[in-house]
């Protein structure tokens, strides 16, 4: 390879290298490092604060989670419609969750029964923290259709 050829190739490699680096840098810049969003895990008070049989909406506005108190324990339902991601409403009088966007409906256990949604609501990891409060982790999901609702952290046993 002659010197002229080498410089030609090296020049083009340098140019291509610059373009690739700049493009990758620009893509990385678009991925934020810090989010001003509510944390994915949160404490939801003490189990005795809940009334047996209620669907608690206290944490819905900030975390989009319902905490349901059954006679034998708790489960956390994600308030994200599994159709297209709107926030359903809890209709206590009709004992169901109803999505205002396209009319999907779910029973209080999260199972879908009407509207266009293809699958039940998702349940979230619910445990007791060291200080005795309920701890919900929205990053860990349990899907009914994958038989994950029977897993230990999908339901918090409490007398």
């Amino acid at each position: 390879m002659s010197r002229k050829n080498f410089l030609n190739v090296a020049g083009w490699f340098g140019f291509a290298g610059f373009l690739v680096t700049a493009t990758l840098g620009a893509i990385r810049l678009m991925v934020p490092r810090v989010l001003y969003e509510p944390p994915s895990a949160f404490k939801a008070g003490y189990p005795e604060d809940y009334i047996v049989g209620e669907v608690n909406e206290k944490y819905k506005d900030e975390y989009r989670v319902w905490i349901v108190r059954d006679p034998d324990g708790f489960y956390a339902l994600s308030a994200i419609c599994t159709h297209l991601g709107c926030t359903p409403r809890w209709l206590a009088a009709e004992n169901k969750f109803k999505c205002p966007c396209h009319g999907s409906g779910y029973h209080r256990d999260g199972i879908n029964f009407e509207g266009p949604t293809p699958r039940p609501l998702e349940r979230l990891k619910i445990t007791l923290a060291d200080d005795g409060q309920i701890l919900v982790d929205r990053n860990i999901k349990f899907l009914y259709e994958k038989q994950e609702w029977s897993k230990p952290d999908a339901f918090l046993k409490y007398g």
Partner: peptide, 18 residues
């Protein structure tokens, strides 16, 4: 959810100020 193409488009995991 916090590193895919939707995350880059939204600048977060949900539709927000970013």
């Amino acid at each position: 959810i916090d590193n895919d193409v939707r995350f880059v488009l939204l600048g977060g995991t949900q539709v927000g100020p970013p």
